[in-house]
C-alpha cells in the first residue's frame, strides 16, 4: 500500500459543504407567530412564550437522554422518570441544609448552593442509571415487552424508595432569593427563573450538539443509533458506549428533575412519572434518537401547552396529542428521523 500512496497527487480544491434541513426549525417561530394574533395581547404573548421556552428547555433536559437511549440501545425505558424524581429529591440533601445560602439575596451564594445540588443530583442519578442499566435493562435487551414491564416496575420501586427515604409528604423547594420575581420588559413580566431555565437548556443543547457533531464519541453515538452492528464491525465496542450514554442520559434527567422541582417549587415522588407523557411525546415528535428533533419537539410541546392553556384551557390536555398527530402526518418518522438499518 505504501508505494501506492506515495504516487498520489496533492490535495485539490476544498470539498463541498453539507446542505441542512431547516424546515423543522421554522416550526417554533411559526407557532409563536401564529399564537400572537390569537392571544391579541403582546405582553401576555411574551410572558407565555418565555414560559413555554423555559418549560420546553426543562422537558428537553429530561428527554434528551431518553431519546439517545431509545435510538442507540433500542430500549423502551419507561423508568426514565425515576431519574427525574430522584434527581430532584437528591438535591434537597444540599438545598434544605443550605437554606440560609439560598435565602440571601446574593447571586454567587445562590448559584454556589444550586450548583452543588445539581452536581450531587447528577452524580447520584448517573450512578443510579449505571445500576439500572446493569441490573434491570441488561437482561432484557431486544425484548421490548419485557423492557416496558420491567422499567415501569423499576419506576414504581424508585417512587416507593423515595417515600422510604424522604417520607410520604410533599417537600417544598423554594426558589433561591435572587431567582425570584420577574423582569419587566415593556409591559411584559418575565420570571427570572424561566430565563435561567432557558439559559441552562440552551447551554446543554449546545454542549450536546458540539459533542455529537464535533467529536468522535459523538460520531460513534450517532452512527450507533443508526446501525450498532456496523459500528462494532468498524472496531468499536458499542456496549461501553451504551452504558456511557445511559449514565449521561440519567444524569441529564437528574439535572432536569432539579430544574423542574424548582420550577414547581414542590417535590412529589410521582413528579417523574407525571412528566413522562410529554417527554415521550417530545421524543416521538423529534424522531427517536435525534437530539435536534428532541430539542425542537420539546419547545413545540411546551409552547403549545402554554398557548392552548391560555386560549382554550379545556383543549390544553389534548393539544400535544394533536400536535403529535399533525407532525407525524407531515413526517411520520418525526421531525429529524434517524435512519435505522
Amino acid at each position: 500500500m505504501s508505494t501506492t500512496v506515495q504516487t498520489i497527487p496533492a490535495a485539490e480544491a476544498p470539498l463541498p459543504k453539507l446542505p441542512a434541513d431547516y424546515k423543522p426549525l421554522l416550526l417554533v417561530p411559526a407557532l409563536a407567530l401564529l399564537a400572537l394574533p390569537l392571544i391579541g395581547d403582546f405582553p401576555a404573548w411574551v410572558t407565555l412564550t418565555v414560559a413555554g421556552l423555559a418549560m420546553g428547555m426543562m422537558i428537553f433536559l429530561m428527554a434528551s437522554g431518553l431519546t439517545l437511549v431509545f435510538g442507540l440501545m433500542d430500549v423502551l425505558n419507561f423508568g426514565h422518570g425515576a431519574f427525574v424524581a430522584v434527581g430532584a429529591f437528591t438535591a434537597t440533601f444540599v438545598l434544605l441544609p443550605m437554606q440560609n445560602w439560598l435565602q440571601v439575596d446574593s447571586v454567587v451564594m445562590n448559584l454556589a448552593a444550586l450548583g452543588l445540588a445539581i452536581l450531587l443530583a447528577m452524580v447520584v442519578t448517573g450512578c443510579l442509571g449505571w445500576i439500572f442499566e446493569r441490573v434491570i435493562i441488561m437482561p432484557v435487551y431486544g425484548q421490548h415487552l419485557k423492557q416496558i414491564l420491567i422499567t415501569m416496575g423499576g419506576l414504581i420501586v424508585a417512587e416507593q424508595l423515595i417515600h422510604v427515604v424522604w417520607g410520604p409528604d410533599q417537600i417544598p423547594l423554594p426558589l433561591p432569593a435572587s431567582f425570584r420575581g420577574a423582569i419587566i420588559l415593556g409591559e411584559a413580566a418575565v420570571e427570572k427563573y424561566r430565563l435561567i431555565a432557558v439559559a441552562v437548556g440552551l447551554a446543554v443543547f449546545i454542549a450536546m450538539s458540539l459533542v455529537l457533531n464535533r467529536t468522535k464519541i459523538g460520531l460513534l453515538i450517532r452512527a450507533g443509533v443508526e446501525n450498532g452492528e456496523m459500528v462494532e464491525a468498524l472496531g468499536y465496542r458499542i456496549r461501553r458506549l451504551f452504558v456511557g450514554v445511559f449514565v449521561a442520559g440519567s444524569a441529564l434527567a437528574g439535572l432536569g428533575g432539579v430544574m423542574w422541582g424548582l420550577y414547581k417549587e414542590v417535590l412529589t415522588a410521582a413528579m417523574g412519572s407525571e412528566i413522562m407523557v410529554p417527554v415521550f411525546i417530545v421524543i416521538i415528535i423529534g424522531g427517536l434518537g435525534s437530539v435536534g428533533g428532541c430539542f425542537i419537539g420539546a419547545l413545540l410541546v411546551a409552547l403549545m401547552a402554554n398557548y392552548t392553556g391560555f386560549l382554550v384551557p379545556k383543549v390544553a390536555l389534548a393539544s400535544n396529542i394533536l400536535l403529535m398527530v399533525a407532525i407525524l402526518l407531515w413526517r411520520p418518522q418525526g421531525l429529524y428521523p434517524v435512519a435505522k438499518r
Binding site: 450517532r222 443509533v225 443508526e226 446501525n227 456496523m230 464491525a233 434517524v338
Partner: peptide, 11 residues
C-alpha cells in the same frame, strides 16, 4: 452496505 445514512460521507 451498512453506511450511516445520517452521517456525511466525510463522517
Amino acid at each position: 452496505m451498512g453506511i450511516f445514512s445520517d452521517l456525511t460521507v466525510r463522517e
